[in-house]
């Protein structure tokens, strides 16, 4: 396993000069994922429509040093499954050299949890040898911050605005990582840009398995969340420390925590730092809702602990 120093010295597969916002976690996630891959092995990237795609491939420029394809919003997994099938077919027939090539798809939560959900589920079920990475910032950021099924309950977005009678998004978020684990694929994990060594190790494992792998990465959007750009990584860390975003992996169906916070921090304090939850604190704290949201996080954390415990 590569050390941090070795990882840092690997040549960039994804260059600077792209047009993502300052403090955007998506390019951080991409750099971490790409660095975890053996530099000798080529990778083909597929990308769902979204911030990452529009900021990194403005024709005639590209930030991607290896081969890259963007097709549409809801089909990154299906598109990449086609590329991977071409690789298997052409290699088997001797039409291309027999050497390893890796396949990775990047999609935001909108392109993964929602519009690309069926395409992702199909590709995973078919067993293609590819890694799907979701960079989860909890909204359709590219179109101007609309709610997705990854948006946490209570968050104000442009389609779940905090109003006089509704306090932000009424529904809790979908647990996509668990749904992907239910596909019984070789590797599923949840990671965060803040815990980069944990993320590196997960990406290494994901690429090492034969067959499909899925990693859901906590990747804050400072415009969506309403946080200063320099706090992106810190607010991601607090998502983990508060147990809102636990770090775990599911290897061949066995669930395992990869990081347990020493002292579980307050989810309410985490929300307090973000403008999207401001209406829950001002003009006066909506204590009942806040306590419900804290209880929801606690419940899901306890359920995860119980699951991990029984599978020890």
């Amino acid at each position: 396993m590569a050390t941090l120093k070795e990882l840092a010295q690997r040549p960039d597969r994804f260059t600077g000069g792209h047009r993502a916002c300052a403090g955007c976690a998506a390019p951080i996630a991409v750099r971490q994922v790409m660095a975890a891959l053996d530099p000798e092995i080529p990778v083909v990237t597929a990308n769902a429509t979204g911030c990452l795609e529009v900021t990194t491939t403005i024709y005639p420029f590209t930030a991607w040093k290896g081969s890259y394809i963007h097709c549409a919003f809801g089909n990154a997994a299906a598109t990449l499954s086609g590329v991977e099938s071409a690789y298997q077919s052409l290699k088997r027939q001797g039409k291309i050299p027999d050497r390893p090539i890796k396949f990775v798809a990047f999609g935001g939560d909108g392109g993964t949890y929602d519009i690309g959900f069926q395409s992702l589920s199909g590709a995973m079920e078919r067993g293609h040898d590819l890694v799907y990475i979701c960079y989860d910032n909890g909204a359709y950021a590219n179109t101007g911050i609309q709610r997705s099924s990854a948006t946490p309950r209570g968050a104000s977005t442009t389609t779940s605005p905090a109003g006089k009678v509704i306090a932000g998004k009424p529904q809790p978020r979908k647990d996509l990582t668990a749904i992907m684990a239910a596909h019984n694929i070789p590797y599923v994990a949840q990671a965060s840009v803040s815990h980069y060594m944990d993320l590196f190790r997960k990406v290494e494992k994901a690429f090492a398995v034969e067959g499909p792998a899925f990693i859901n990465i906590m990747a804050p959007c400072r415009l969506t969340w309403g946080t200063p750009p320099e706090e992106t990584v810190d607010i991601a860390r607090e998502a983990v420390e508060s147990c809102f975003w636990p770090l775990y992996e599911v290897v061949d169906g066995v669930w395992k925590l990869t990081y347990k916070p020493r002292q579980k921090t307050s989810f309410i304090d985490w929300m307090k730092r973000q403008a999207r939850f401001r209406h829950l604190f001002k003009p006066e704290p909506k204590t009942e809702i806040l306590e419900e949201l804290q209880a929801e996080v606690d419940k899901r954390w306890e359920q995860l602990l119980a699951r991990v415990e029984t599978e020890k």
Binding site: V44, A46, I69, C71, A72, G74, N75, A78, T79, L80, S81, G82, V83, E84, S85, A86, Y87, S89, L90, Q118, S119, S121, G122, A123, E125
Partner: peptide, 16 residues
């Protein structure tokens, strides 16, 4: 699992 994915996959394959 759908025609949307059928065309998406042949696009990926042809691009490959």
């Amino acid at each position: 699992e759908s025609e949307h994915s059928a065309m998406s996959a042949v696009i990926g394959a042809a691009a490959g």
